[in-house]
Computed example of a mutant assay.
Amino acid sequence: MKLGEQRLGGRAADELQDLVLASSDLEEFLGGLALQAAIWLARADRHVICAVAVTRPRKPATIGAGSPDVLELEQLQSQGGEGPGITAMAEKRTVYVRDLTRETRWPEFCQTAASGGHFAVLDIPIELDGELDGEGDGERRAVLSAYARRRSGFTAGDIVTAENVARQVSRPLRLALRIGRLQGARDDLASAMQSRTVIDMAIGVVMAQNRCGPDEAFTLLRKASNARNTKLRDVATSIVASIAGITDIQSRFEL
C-alpha cells in the first residue's frame, strides 16, 4: 500500500458511487466531491478547502468548491486562462505552490488568493479517458485543487494522498460526465419533439385557414419565419397560442 492510501479507507468507492447517484447534475456532483476530498485531506492541525474543475470542448468550465471564495478563485483561473490549476491540467502534472505571496507566475490569482487568507495551493490533474463523445484526453480535463491557510501547508505525504484521491475520483467523475451527456441528449430530444409538435399544430392551423395541403402550409410557415427573422418554432408557437385564445390573430394566416 502506498503512503496515503490508508487515509481513504475501504468505504471511499461506495461513498463516491452514492455521490454520483444522489447528484442531480454535474455541478452538484463536483460540489459534493470537493467536500468529500477535503475530508480525506484534512488533518487535525490543518483546515483544507477543496475544489474540482472540469473543462470540456465548447462548454464553460464546470466547478464545484467547498466555499464561495475558493469557487471565486477557480472561476478567476477559468476566465483568465491561467493559474496553478490550469497549469496542472494542461501539463498533466501536480503543481504545488508553497507560498502564494512569493509566487510570480500568476500574479492576479496569487494576490486574490493570499488576500483571502489562502497561502498554499495543491493542484492534482484528474485523468479522464477519451471514450466520452469520442474525444481525446487533451480536450476534456479535470483538476482537484486543495487550499491551505498557512504557508507550506502540505507535506510530501499529503501530496501522495491527494494524488491517490485524484485517482480514486477519476472513474466516478467519468461516470458523472457520461450521465450528464445522456441527460443532455435526452433534454435535446425532448426539446426537438416539442418543437416538432408545435410546428405540426401550426401547419394544421395554416392548412385550415388557407385551405391548402401540408407542404404548402409548411412553406408558408418557413417564409414567415424568414420574413420576420424569427425561428420557425417561435412563429409556430405564436400561431398556436393565438388560436388558443392567448393573443389576437387575423382570421387568415398571411405573410
Rank of each mutant, 00 (worst) to 15 (best):
T230M: 12
A51S: 15
L128V: 04
R43G: 10
I86S: 04
D25L: 09
T197C: 08
T55R: 08
R211P: 10
A37Q: 11
V235I: 10
R149L: 09
R167Y: 06
R186T: 03
G32L: 04
E108Q: 08
L221S: 01
A190F: 00
M89S: 11
R181D: 13
R233L: 11
E72R: 06
L221C: 03
I179D: 10
L132W: 02
L232G: 14
L189G: 07
R7K: 12
R43N: 12
L30F: 05
R102H: 09
Q36L: 10
R140C: 00
V165I: 14
D188H: 03
G204Y: 05
R196W: 07
I239G: 04
R151A: 14
R93A: 15
T55N: 10
R252E: 12
Q209W: 14
D187Y: 08
P214R: 11
Y147V: 01
T62C: 07
R105H: 10
G184L: 04
E108Y: 03
D99P: 02
G85A: 15
E28F: 01
A53G: 14
Q111V: 05
R228I: 02
R252A: 05
G9P: 11
G81W: 04
R105A: 13
L35S: 13
E108P: 04
S67F: 15
L8E: 07
G130I: 00
R46G: 13
L177A: 11
L3T: 05
V240C: 04
G32Y: 05
I199D: 04
V52E: 08
G157M: 02
Q6P: 00
R252L: 09
D69N: 07
F218P: 03
D133Q: 10
V235S: 08
A51Q: 15
E28I: 04
D137N: 06
E108V: 02
I124R: 12
E108S: 03
D133N: 11
R56L: 01
P214Q: 07
I126W: 02
R150M: 11
D99I: 03
I49L: 06
A217D: 02
Y96E: 02
V160P: 00
P107T: 00
G116Q: 07
V95M: 10
D187T: 08
G184M: 03
P68F: 00
G4K: 14
S191D: 13
A146P: 15
L19W: 03
D215C: 14
E216A: 15
V165A: 13
Q194M: 13
Q75V: 05
S191Q: 13
L132P: 11
V240F: 01
Q36A: 04
G130K: 05
T94Q: 05
S145W: 08
Q17P: 12
R46C: 14
R150W: 02
A146Y: 14
E135I: 04
I243W: 00
G138I: 03
D69V: 02
D158Q: 10
C212F: 02
A236Q: 09
N229E: 10
I63T: 09
F109W: 13
R11G: 08
T247A: 07
N210D: 09
S251G: 02
R102N: 01
L16T: 00
A176Y: 02
T62R: 05
S145Y: 06
I199R: 06
E82G: 04
G204P: 09
V205I: 03
E216R: 15
D200P: 01
V48T: 06
A146W: 13
V165R: 14
E91A: 15
K231E: 11
S67T: 08
G31T: 09
